[in-house]
Every structure is written in structure tokens, then in C-alpha cells.
Design a protein around this nucleic acid. Structure first.
Length: 186
DNA sequence: CAGTGGATGCTCT
DNA sequence: GAGCATCCACTGT
């Protein structure tokens, strides 16, 4: 596994993660949308230094950083290296490929486009919670599979933040209809 | 369609 | 005590 992927800058790691397949207990799909949160980034949880919540972001790369968002959702990140200064890539959307039926039950929906299109949605669909904070993504119950073909990636500004709003650090698979902003289609 | 606001809990000031 | 890296239901066109 080319896990050097997460050893460098989040701006290399984030587009590099697009197209990988992520499964938890066999349920998941292809990563089609992520956002980079760099060490030197006012919008990053790690920006003000290490705290109990963000400690995982400063740890070994390739781990999961999970936090609660707006009191009700979980959001999942892949921790990157960046000289141990705290950096991670937020998983924003998957193209569901494995375990669709279980995802539908967990999400209470049938529409496959709404199963994993959004950071809170994908964690709910996979059953990802705080219990997975700090988990090693290269080991069970997680599975990571590299893309079988090269993936075209586009950049755009990040969503839902109030600082460093202009930075184009959201990475989406080009032409994907599974991202959180491309929900529209017939 | 677009726009608004409520739910909800934890972290840090 | 404020401020969220969100989602959904509801409103008015």
C-alpha cells in the first residue's frame, strides 16, 4: 500500500485520497470528495495547538480523527504527517459501492445519492462514531483499496467554514455526481 | 427551486 | 457562554 500518501503535505494527500475505496466492516465506497486542513491553517482544529480533542491530529499519520459536529453529527478525517504539527483530510463524500442495504437502514433513506454525500451522512452510513477516533485505517475493521485507474481531481473552496474561506482546498473527483454539491441529477 | 432556522453537545474562551 | 469542518424540514415563490 502506498501509505506514504499521508506522510507529506495535506495538499498532496487530499487529492491523492480521491478514488480510494474505504470500507468499515465491509460497508462503504469510493472517496470522491475531501477537504484539506493544514497545520498552518486558521480553519483547522489543530491551528491553536494540541488539545485533548485534537490530539490524534498530531499523532501518527493514517489514523482516523473523529469529532462531533453541531452536536449531532460525526465527521471523520484521515490524519496526515506535516512534521507532526497537526493536519488532516476531512472525508466529505463517498460513492456508495458496498453494503448499500445496511446504509439505507442506517440513513433511513432509499436514494443512493443521499447515503454518503456529506461528512455527517457518510459517517452515519458507515456506522462511524467517536469509538473509531484514533483507529488505524490500514487495519480491520477498516479496509482501504487503491484506485484501479488514474483519477482526475478538481479543486474548489471549502464548505461550511468561516476562516480562510477563500482557500481552494476542497478536492472532488472531476465529473462525479456523488459529491455533496452535485446531488442534483436525474 | 431558494432561503431560513431548529436540533443538539462538546470544546475552548 | 459562544461558536461551530451539519442535516433536514419547512416556508414562500
Amino acid at each position: 500500500m502506498t501509505w506514504e500518501l499521508v506522510a507529506g503535505s495535506v495538499h498532496d494527500a487530499a487529492p491523492g485520497l480521491i478514488g480510494w475505496t474505504l470500507l468499515l466492516d465491509g460497508v462503504g465506497g469510493r472517496i470522491v470528495e475531501v477537504e484539506a486542513y493544514a497545520a498552518d491553517d486558521p480553519a483547522s482544529h489543530s491551528y491553536r495547538g494540541r488539545t485533548p480533542r485534537t490530539a490524534v491530529m498530531f499523532g501518527p499519520p493514517g489514523r482516523l480523527y473523529v469529532y462531533r459536529s453541531y452536536g449531532l453529527h460525526w465527521c471523520a478525517n484521515v490524519v496526515c504527517e506535516e512534521d507532526g504539527r497537526g493536519a488532516a483530510v476531512l472525508l466529505r463524500a463517498l460513492e456508495p459501492t458496498h453494503g448499500l442495504d445496511l446504509m439505507r437502514v442506517r440513513r433511513g433513506l432509499d436514494d443512493p445519492r443521499l447515503l454518503c454525500a456529506g461528512p455527517g451522512r457518510l459517517t452515519q452510513a458507515l456506522g462511524l462514531t467517536a469509538e473509531h477516533n484514533g483507529a488505524d485505517l490500514t487495519k480491520p475493521p477498516f479496509t482501504l483499496v487503491s484506485p484501479s485507474a488514474p483519477v482526475a481531481v478538481e479543486r474548489s473552496p471549502r464548505i461550511g467554514i468561516t476562516k480562510a474561506v477563500e482557500k481552494p482546498w476542497r478536492y472532488v473527483e472531476a465529473g462525479s455526481s456523488w459529491s455533496s454539491r452535485a446531488r442534483r441529477a436525474a
